[in-house]
Amino acid sequence: MSRALSVYAAAALVFLHAPLVVLVLFSFNGGRFTVWEGFSLRWYQAAVSDPQLAEGLVNSLLIAVVAGVLSTVIGTLAAYGMWRRASPVLSGALYLSLVTPEIVTGVSLLALFQWAFRFLHLQLGLYTVVIAHVAFSIAYVTIVVSSRLRSYDRTLEEAAMDLGATEWGAFRRVTLPSIAPAVAAAGLLALVVSFDDYVITSLVAGVDSQTLPMVIYAMARRGVSPVVNAVSALIVVAFGAVIVVAERLQKR
């Protein structure tokens, strides 16, 4: 039976990886169609010189960095606070955010923003996307940081306070430095989650604030374009690099 199991596992691995491998492979195709016509970088050139993709990339990076930093700060503070003493209401709310379908999170935020705009002279833009991304990223950050804190020795902090440190001082100068790799890993995860989101973003983004996934979605909808393959390949590589760094950080 173990023989059959190995063959099956290999087949499952092919199923999981093959779609992405062929996608990346055909980004180097010389022709427009799904027939191999020799190696070429023309679709990468086309992708790099596409103004919409460039604008989407800038917007996405901007949103991911701001939302990543904000949710890392908020999530880390929350994880630390809940580590000191459990807060059932906050952890309940964070779990709720994890099980709420993305589409519901998206429309509910859209409803909130539209309601608020009745009183404020504002409209949807990049900042509404940042608010939404922070809202769903806090839970991810909290989970990563909390799991690190579980193995953190409480007595270190008690020692610092016995030696005269304030609670804030003990956190900033003793606890935070030792959980820093996990915090950085959580930040990278938040960055990736924000950069990748399409469903929520498409609902709360302003007309002039297209993100990269929104541009890719529109291109994929329009029809065959190897440019999308090229962009996808770049995203796969970039995400892979970020995740490898994040995992290394968490293991420290």
């Binding site: 779609p19 992405l20 996608l23 950069f195 979605y217 994929a220 796969v236 995740i243």
Partner: peptide, 13 residues
């Protein structure tokens, strides 16, 4: 760990 949109697009492709 790669983008959800990219994984779905791969099947479209």
């Amino acid at each position: 760990w790669t983008s959800f949109l990219v994984r779905t697009y791969a099947w479209l492709f």
